[in-house]
């Protein structure tokens, strides 16, 4: 880890000022991602602005039928929140499986949304795209954990936030505060696909901090389902969150967001179209799952993810409909 300056602001204004006053300053909250990246010299800021002393950033409040979750709210507090458990099981289920008890005690909602990709090429110091001599190391290398969608480009890593998946499904917005004031964008707009090695996958601007996410009033049903290799402390291989606006037994509008398959949280419009106007049954869920992976173009070593994604999408849909067939055996 390179040496850096340290600032510990107590207000959002101070935090923004501390960040903008530096050349390459970064905000630090739970530290579960950033500190490791700094130790690996993947990120070497000249200043670290510690946000946990900024009290207004933490907390969960009701807003017009929905919920506002401060970016500084710890994951453990998201899990314990009764409103989230009741109204937004998709969010609670995804949060429950993040990291470990220690990580959930430390990590925050904002930090989870803005963590950098876990791609092992990036973490090895080979750059966000893992390029060497103009060629992608990922494409010919070990890409078992990489994308199966958008693979025509060079960004082959997968978007790492478990919380973005349900939040986007639930139609949440993110509020950012910078030198020039505040802006609110859909959570999905926090992410972009980098085209070159100089691009980033996050849209947050220099000097900005994420202050909160707001989830609108729930409609219908929502759920998350994930598959991972280990039960203890592991990253999902694939995670799917669905939010179904129901008209009686039928889906009026549904949102299907998939983690682990693309450099951004992947919205499957094909799966959404497949369930529109239909009841969620084994058959319709399977059809939607088929539709979800129709456009998949896996890499050399992650073809297994196509079938896995199908299963995860199917199970997320069925979980929302109250059918957990895989637990019955």
């Amino acid at each position: 880890m390179q040496a850096f300056e340290y600032a510990g602001p107590s207000t959002i204004e101070e935090a923004v000022k501390s960040l903008t006053g530096s050349k390459s300053g970064v905000a630090l909250s739970g530290g579960t991602d950033l500190i490791s990246r700094m130790k690996d010299y993947v990120t070497s800021p000249d200043r670290v602005v510690y946000l946990k002393g900024v009290k207004p950033l933490a907390g969960i409040t009701e807003t017009k039928g929905g919920l506002s979750i401060g970016a500084g709210t710890r994951l453990v507090d998201v899990i314990a929140n009764k409103d989230i458990a009741k109204e937004f099981p998709a969010l609670q289920q995804a949060t429950l499986e993040v990291g470990t008890p220690q990580i959930r005690n430390m990590a925050t909602v904002g930090g989870n949304l803005l963590q950098r990709p876990r791609c092992w090429y990036y973490r090895s110091g080979l750059g966000l795209l893992g390029m060497k001599d103009g060629k992608s190391l990922v494409r010919t290398g070990d890409n078992r954990y990489h994308s199966i969608f958008m693979t025509d480009g060079d960004a082959l890593f997968t978007s790492p936030s478990s919380l973005a998946t349900p939040l986007i499904a639930l139609g949440a917005t993110a509020t950012l505060v910078g030198e020039k004031g505040e802006r609110t964008i859909p959570v999905e707009a926090l992410y972009q696909v980098p085209k070159t090695s100089d691009d980033r996958e996050l849209t947050i601007l220099p000097g900005e901090i994420l202050t909160k996410v707001t989830i609108p009033e729930p409609k219908g049903k929502n759920a998350s389902y994930e598959a991972r290799q280990k039960q203890a402390h592991d990253w999902p291989l694939v995670l799917c969150s669905v939010s179904l606006d129901m008209n009686g037994n039928e889906v009026n509008n549904g949102r299907v967001i998939i983690y682990g398959v693309a450099p951004i949280p992947w919205r499957s419009e094909a799966a959404e179209a497949a369930i529109k106007g239909k009841a969620i049954t084994m058959e319709t869920a399977a059809a939607a799952a088929d539709a979800a992976v129709k456009a998949a173009k896996p890499l050399s070593a992650n073809g297994y993810k196509v079938g896995l994604t199908k299963t995860v999408v199917k199970r997320a849909l069925l979980a929302a409909a109250g059918n957990r067939y895989w637990e019955e055996a």
Binding site: Y121, S124, L126, K132, T140, G141, D142, K230, H233
Partner: peptide, 25 residues
């Protein structure tokens, strides 16, 4: 142990992507 053919580096020299059982496993 995952080795990258292109760069020749070990890709998982950690205790996260080098996977070891925890209590729930």
């Amino acid at each position: 142990r995952v080795m990258d053919p292109g760069s020749g580096l070990m890709l998982n020299p950690d205790m996260e992507l080098y996977k070891l059982a925890g209590l729930s496993d």
